[in-house]
Design a binder for these strands. Structure first.
Lengths: 344, 344
DNA sequence: CTGTTAGCGCTTTCAA
DNA sequence: TTGAAAGCGCTAACAG
């Protein structure tokens, strides 16, 4: 006694509004939601009282009653990667247009964390889930189990042999665009520096590259695989430098790797593109920050977000619908990392 | 009739587990949560049945009962900006350690959207909110109203004259580090290229710069203000080129702006740092992608996330606690954009 | 140790 | 047009 007691002021409920307005909670609910018939006068009165009391609907209460809130979850490997940042940005747009909120979770690229985040989303009873699986194989159990419980769409990457919707870029076409571009500019010795087989994206880009090399009868080179990190791009470039004469072109698995490679090459006194052409993949802001600016395979961010949203909605409406496996065409943005700089 | 009927299989509830296990729902709840005394045998039995039925707790039900779920919300202006990506990453870490999930919302830097996202979080009855206000003045109403309803901590940016907790970097110290560095390397004519007065960060960095210029009796230059975008950095550099002789150093408001400026300078045939030194601010991956690598003021990402989390927890525990206004010291990461390249 | 019961805040019949 | 009441899934008293 004597000390000031801190009161945790609970938030205003329908009951309090009803009491203050002199009507039943049912009437308040109806008045505020406006879908049901309420007399104009009471509706106005209730709205006024609710406003005065600072009432805010409790989405937890509504969600329980309705069976769930209007929420979609997304699990990405690294939110700080600009590629996912951009993708999430677009997803949020499309979802909001349909009245859904987005809950974002980060798996840190770890399978265990991924499983746990998926579980959290299921327990929150989200309406649907987008997931960028962190491992083409090890993510199987968690993703499959989740898909059994709630509408789920794999985005960008997928789990091998999993029966679940997928929306991503056409990696074959993307690699082809890049290789076609550098070879049309005279490259014969072309090396791939890309992600390893842990992700489906890494596998697909590798397979696409090897296939196109055969088709075009380019020389077979020792490609380099690792993680989608700046540091990997640097290490790979250093290895290429150590091997001897540089190839004519480096096809990087993503913009981050390309940026790292370019930095290392320039530090070693080599110049891009005259000593070696370099291409990226994704079309993130990193491509524009590079010097020279990066020629890169641009992902159709908005198209991906839209298709993914549509696939998810379809799945929510009909859990039995056949699985879709949607590949969107990328485009090539040509810049100075493969073409002689403009005169200044 | 005849067509296959799609049944939306509702998820398993406590009741069903209880029925299948031949005990009451209270026992199931206790057994599964393990905090209360239940006989080892029943606990085991219940766990087994729950597992077999694929039971998952419904966080909405629990949340309603408990008064809310264990959720914290965060509203950032642009999730695709690597700075916020990194910050969110760290926040998630600290929160998860305390058992909270993070819901991320994007305001797109628009005050209206920001108000709406804050409202959503309030209606979801999140335990607390981090917000990076999109406008130092226009965000006032929405942020103030939200702070009245739920524990809230402003992060990175703040609203002028608002009584609410704040955690951010010490912009004065940051600008000072940068200016001190370039002047110690001989710069006399130093220009600031930074964000305008829309954000508190823009204001603070500008004021800090002008103050330090006076203190050091550097020449007064026409600084350039705009948005924290790559394109603004480019435009600003072009303007400086058009003005005549370049200054000795450019202090950029963030890494994005610095990267844009460097790109434009190099395109114009100028070299960094020999023609002009350039520094950035934030310490994002962009700084390492630049060529030459960017000397930049590094924000203490993890420290910010930790302090912000602590401030929020404090606010949750005592709504009456005095407001904290916490400024963390940045550090300077020196690289080639201000120092002669190493020999190779 | 276990069951019964009362709600958390909300929406939606069902009556009046 | 409005009110009364049920119940979404869960946990925490309170009995037993």
């Amino acid at each position: 006694m004597g000390g000031r007691v801190v009161v945790k002021k609970a938030s205003v409920t329908l009951h309090e509004v009803a009491a203050a307005a002199g009507v039943s909670i049912a009437t308040v609910s109806r008045a505020l939601n406006g879908k049901d018939r309420v007399s104009g006068r009471t509706a106005e009165h209730v709205a006024e009282v609710a406003e005065r009391l600072g009432y805010r609907v409790n989405l937890i209460g509504r969600g329980l009653r309705a069976g769930s809130g209007a929420t979609i979850g997304v699990v990405v490997p690294v939110i700080s990667n600009p590629f996912y940042g951009e993708l999430i940005h677009r997803l949020e747009d499309h979802l909001q247009r349909r009245g859904f909120d987005l809950v974002i979770a980060d798996s840190h690229g770890e399978v265990d964390r991924e499983r746990e985040r998926l579980r959290m989303l299921v327990e929150r009873r989200v309406e649907g889930i987008f997931v960028v699986p962190s491992d083409a194989e090890l993510s199987y159990d968690a993703v499959a189990d989740t898909a059994r419980r709630v509408p789920l769409v794999q985005l960008d990457r997928r789990v091998i042999d999993l029966s679940a919707d997928f929306v991503g870029v056409d990696n074959d076409a993307g690699i082809d665009l890049a290789v076609d571009h550098v070879t049309s500019r005279g490259a014969r010795r072309v090396v791939l520096v890309s992600g390893n087989d842990v992700t489906s994206v890494g596998r697909e880009r590798r397979a696409a590259f090897e296939a196109t090399v055969r088709t075009r009868s380019l020389s077979r080179e020792d490609n380099i695989f690792g993680e989608y990190l700046l540091a990997f791009g640097e290490r790979a470039a250093e290895e290429l430098l150590a091997r001897g004469p540089l190839p004519d072109a480096i096809i990087a698995g993503d913009d981050l790797v390309a940026a790292g490679a370019i930095a290392a090459l320039k530090r070693a006194g080599r110049s891009v593109p005259s000593d070696v052409q370099v291409t990226g993949f994704d079309g993130t802001m990193l491509a524009d920050v590079c010097e020279p600016r990066l020629t890169t395979v641009v992902q159709p961010f908005d198209g991906l977000a839209q298709e993914a949203t549509e696939a998810l909605v379809r799945r929510m409406e009909d859990p039995e619908a056949p699985y879709v496996l949607r590949r969107l065409a990328p485009s090539l943005r040509v810049a100075e990392s493969t073409t002689p700089a403009a005169t200044h």
